[in-house]
Design a protein around this nucleic acid. Sequence first.
DNA 1: GTGGTCTAGACCACT
DNA 2: GTGGTCTAGACCACG
Lengths: 133, 133, 133, 133
Amino acid sequence: MMKIFALHIQIDPHSGLPIYRQIMDQIKYYQASGALQAGHQLPSIRELSKLLAVNPATISKAYNELKHEKVIEIRKGKGAFLLEPETVISEAMQRDALKRIARQFIVEAKQMGASSGLVREILEQVLNELSMH
Amino acid sequence: MMKIFALHIQIDPHSGLPIYRQIMDQIKYYQASGALQAGHQLPSIRELSKLLAVNPATISKAYNELKHEKVIEIRKGKGAFLLEPETVISEAMQRDALKRIARQFIVEAKQMGASSGLVREILEQVLNELSMH
Amino acid sequence: MMKIFALHIQIDPHSGLPIYRQIMDQIKYYQASGALQAGHQLPSIRELSKLLAVNPATISKAYNELKHEKVIEIRKGKGAFLLEPETVISEAMQRDALKRIARQFIVEAKQMGASSGLVREILEQVLNELSMH
Amino acid sequence: MMKIFALHIQIDPHSGLPIYRQIMDQIKYYQASGALQAGHQLPSIRELSKLLAVNPATISKAYNELKHEKVIEIRKGKGAFLLEPETVISEAMQRDALKRIARQFIVEAKQMGASSGLVREILEQVLNELSMH
DNA sequence: GTGGTCTAGACCACT
DNA sequence: GTGGTCTAGACCACG
């Protein structure tokens, strides 16, 4: 019964991001950081709903989207479980997609006046935080 | 006259992103890349509307949001003009905000199976592309 | 439910002011008077739209502008809620801004032939009306 | 030939206010302050247009509006001249109108966090500036 | 139920 | 010519 009680998700109703997106992002983050690993069970919809004081339909939507993105698997009557991260896209597509999101990141960074040095520094910090050495 | 003819914006109706957001993002990108500079005039609403085959009200919304974000200035009867980028936030806030968007970037990158090496490589490429050496 | 039934807004189609501006001004007035307080929910767009016999998009624009001015907060799927008024400007800037709008006020008052005594009298009346003793 | 060369009007294209309104407001301001008096001649449209680097049609609109408001008089082939300030509205209407603009003023003042003391102080300052003792 | 996006088309205000 | 406002109505996203 590998229940994950340490999974504390923060919802910010003022962030502008849809709540279900915030939940998805943080589950992905925990997966990326290694805190959540393949096979781990996620809290039930009902549980998480109470914990976050969020409508169960919202949790359900988050889980459902994660299912479609093949991040989790839903076993009827059992619960939701993390899957092995998939990496099936081609090299070229990966580079393209990466460039696209990198561009978004850098444009925003530049907008707030960050220097390339600071960008690199923060990047290394976050790579480290997410155990990508 | 300083008309901007080189400003070609691509709209992808399947991207999920609202059209007005796509327009905003690309104008910000052109600004970040230096292709658009402070004082430059943007295409008129009607022009861009025809060019992109998009309703004028949608272009208007994009411009209006950019106005609120202080990216452009709208002079009634004249047109829309790029502003000097503002950078008034504190060092600490800048680092925090940067970390937040970097985390988002890296999580997505990791999700698609990118190695830290590839992330660094693409980042340098994009920094270069946006003249941040 | 905290619905606001007492929020009756008057639209004057001949005033020259855009409808969405009239709505904004009156909501700001209700906020200043204390009738609307932080956390209070505003009527839904559709409700107000019916009440004022005005297109929903127009109400939406009013709410959206108030969002940008940080007067209200919009939670998708929930509604629009009043925010705590922000006051982060410096003393000097406040005095300058105040002087500017005071000048506008007095010039208009003088234009209509009002004496300084009448101006002071009306001012006290309005300060009182808005609970600023 | 009582030409008014000392009439220096400031146009701020970023203020949001239409240029013709800014011109009108400042002419009214000069009238209210006593700098401009009945009979004084205003600069010609062509002159002011050059001086302010503003389209002549814009100056023309400002003068035309002032004419309708009976602030100035346009004598063909002669120029524009200030009129005696009219005060024909009834006491009750005056009070109503005054209250309306006072409300606008105070709501804005409150929005920026000004105390009633500061409002009164600035008001006296401006009344003084405009010679309304 | 809530608000958000987009369209088509009319009319107005500003320069 | 420029952008701004408003309408009517369709469809989507969020909780």
